[in-house]
Simulated assay, not measured.
Amino acid sequence: MTALIYLGAALAEIAGCFAFWSVLRQGASPLWLAAGALSLLAFAWLLTLVEVEAAGRAYAAYGGVYVAASLGWLWAVEGVRPDRWDVMGSAICVAGAAIVLFGPRG
């Protein structure tokens, strides 16, 4: 369930930020800002659903998922295929996120 929450949060954050990017950098209608703000609210809410004892740990682990999802967005929405360095860097980030989230604590 945690992976799905993180994926949903990443998509909500990226979509929300992309809405602002589109308005400010690409001249999209300012109406996109409302959708972007709602998407960013959904992102913040979704992160509260992760079952960890500290918010900072939830955010740190989310960072790796965000990197991977951003590269998926790059390819799916912006039409730019990630290169091998993107993929390698993303894999390292996801591995780091897994260590943060699932590492043994005692």
Rank of each mutant, 00 (worst) to 15 (best):
A42L: 15
R57L: 14
E53V: 09
L40Y: 05
A54M: 13
A34D: 06
A42C: 15
R57A: 09
L49D: 00
A55Q: 04
L38E: 01
A44K: 04
S39F: 12
V50M: 03
T48R: 08
L40I: 12
L47P: 00
V50G: 00
L40C: 03
A34C: 12
L41P: 01
A58I: 04
S29W: 09
L31P: 00
V50H: 03
W45T: 07
R57T: 12
E51F: 04
W32E: 02
E53N: 13
Y62G: 02
W45R: 11
A54N: 14
Y59V: 13
G56Q: 02
L31Q: 13
A60N: 01
Y62P: 05
L38A: 11
L47M: 07
L49Q: 13
L49M: 14
A42K: 08
S29P: 03
A55F: 12
G56L: 01
G63S: 12
E53C: 04
E53K: 15
W45G: 00
A34M: 11
V52D: 14
A42M: 14
F43L: 03
E53F: 06
E53D: 15
P30Q: 08
S29T: 08
V50N: 02
A34W: 12
L40V: 09
L33E: 02
A35L: 13
W45K: 03
E53S: 14
A61H: 08
A58M: 09
L49S: 09
Y62S: 06
T48V: 01
G56D: 04
L49G: 00
L41E: 05
Y62D: 03
A54G: 10
W32L: 10
R57C: 01
A34H: 05
E51N: 14
Y62Q: 09
Y59W: 10
L49E: 08
L46K: 00
A37N: 10
E53P: 11
A55N: 04
S39K: 07
A35N: 02
A60H: 04
A54R: 15
L38V: 08
A61K: 02
L38F: 08
R57K: 11
A35R: 06
L31K: 10
T48M: 02
L40W: 07
S29D: 15
S29L: 05
L40Q: 07
R57D: 10
A37V: 11
A37P: 01
A55W: 06
F43T: 00
A34G: 12
P30C: 07
E53Y: 05
L41A: 14
A42P: 10
L47D: 01
G36S: 07
L41F: 14
L38W: 02
L41Q: 06
L31Y: 13
A37Y: 06
S39N: 07
G63I: 07
S39G: 11
A54Y: 14
W32D: 00
L41M: 13
A58L: 09
V50E: 06
W32I: 00
E51G: 11
V52M: 13
W45Y: 15
G56P: 01
A54H: 15
W45I: 12
W32K: 06
L49K: 10
A54C: 06
L47R: 04
G36V: 07
L31W: 15
Y62E: 04
T48C: 01
A44M: 09
L38I: 08
R57S: 05
G63M: 05
L31M: 12
E51W: 09
